[in-house]
Amino acid sequence: MNLLPMLVFGLLVVLGTGGTILERDPFAKLISLSLIAAGVIPFVVDRGYLDVAIALALIVPLSTFFLLMACRRDRT
């Protein structure tokens, strides 16, 4: 991978981590978490581990569902 894509995907991971820590709303925290996944998956694909990338792309939304159940129980 060239330098520019590497910097940008690293930036996405850093932004997602910062947002997850700093945001107040639990839903905004979840949105920042999916920004981390958006930054990580291109690095996995760049090494050629496509099966790992597919598994990751399916595991991240499913784990978000379980976190959403916790958020909903917290709000009501």
């Binding site: 839903f27 979840l30 949105i31 999916s34 996944a37 958006a38 998956i41 694909v45 496509l50 990338a53 597919i54 792309a57 399916l58 991240v60 939304p61 978000t64 569902f65 959403l68």
Partner: peptide, 19 residues
Amino acid sequence: TIIAAAAYFIGTTLESNAI
């Protein structure tokens, strides 16, 4: 990679939908 891109895209869409 086609399947990886489609799985990633549909996964994030589903996540946005659920949120």
